[in-house]
Design a protein around this nucleic acid. Structure first.
Lengths: 155, 155
DNA sequence: GCTGAAACGTCGGAGCT
DNA sequence: AGCTCCGACGTTTCAGC
């Protein structure tokens, strides 16, 4: 992972549909060289995939919410299986603290949201926050600063 | 936004680097027809962009956290300007409830995380949850079910 | 890491169902 | 609104270096 890899990552995070030719031009490498780097980043799991970002509001989902839930340890597997079936849950993290999981979900309207939370609530106590706006939606990952890298490896 | 549009969205959410030719094959449309649909979805803002998803752990960020913060109303603008300068904050939502904002951020290690939160803490009281795992990382948005669409428009 | 050439994909426009 | 045909150009892939 050198400077060029991070430059490539930066460009692909800005626009995943950029062509290898344009990528090559911008990093001052030949097309095969940059193609090989991208393939390596994919195979190493640094690049997890390429996705189109869809605006939920424009796609008929008027409300977004963050929901925390406390799930008793034995019910966690069942809960995760349940989540798989709820397509409105877009993201779910297993976290430390009072909440077991924190989810981000969407709904077409408030009534829809209420119905969703009712069903989720069967697995544990929930805390819901409505998302009013998203000042920062998934910013690109940058190369760790030298200051923070110093702690582990100084290469 | 008909079934074909949703099929296109689904494919682009699975793999943003798919070619128009492959897309056309899979939705049983001609290349010009599918290209025009994608262009329209982009111009209408339904598609917000195409991004490469980078695995933070594979890129040198060993820890992820969710941080909620209570910011007094007059300090909010200053806080958002501050956030712009912190590249480790990947996502930030303005929410209802005790927290003003909920952020997702990454750090190379615990010491790094502590330093980050110290700086964020200058703007308000924070609550931090460590992300242990992410059972569901940004699932694709699907077409709202008929049940939930019935409430608003029945077309 | 670099050509270079063949195969493939993309983007116009024209005319048609 | 969609299709095909077309040609020109850009892009990808794979050989060989």
């Amino acid at each position: 992972m050198d400077d060029l890899d991070w430059k490539v990552l930066s460009l692909l995070q800005q626009n995943a549909r950029i062509t290898y030719t344009a990528l090559a031009r911008q990093v001052h490498l030949s097309v095969p060289a940059v193609t090989e780097r991208v393939k390596r980043l994919e195979e190493d799991g640094v690049i997890d995939g390429y996705v189109a970002r869809v605006n939920p509001a424009m796609a008929g989902y008027a409300v977004s919410a963050l929901v925390g839930i406390t799930v008793p340890q034995p019910a966690k597997t069942k809960f995760l299986n349940f989540l798989e079936t709820i397509s409105e849950v877009l993201e779910c993290h297993h976290v430390t603290g009072a909440d077991s999981y924190v989810m981000r979900l969407v709904a077409t309207n408030m009534a829809d949201l209420e119905r969703l939370i009712e069903r989720i609530n069967l697995y544990g106590e929930t805390r819901t926050s409505l998302v009013m706006s998203t000042p920062l939606a998934t910013r690109a990952l940058q190369r760790p600063s030298v200051a923070s890298r110093r702690s582990k490896d100084a290469r």
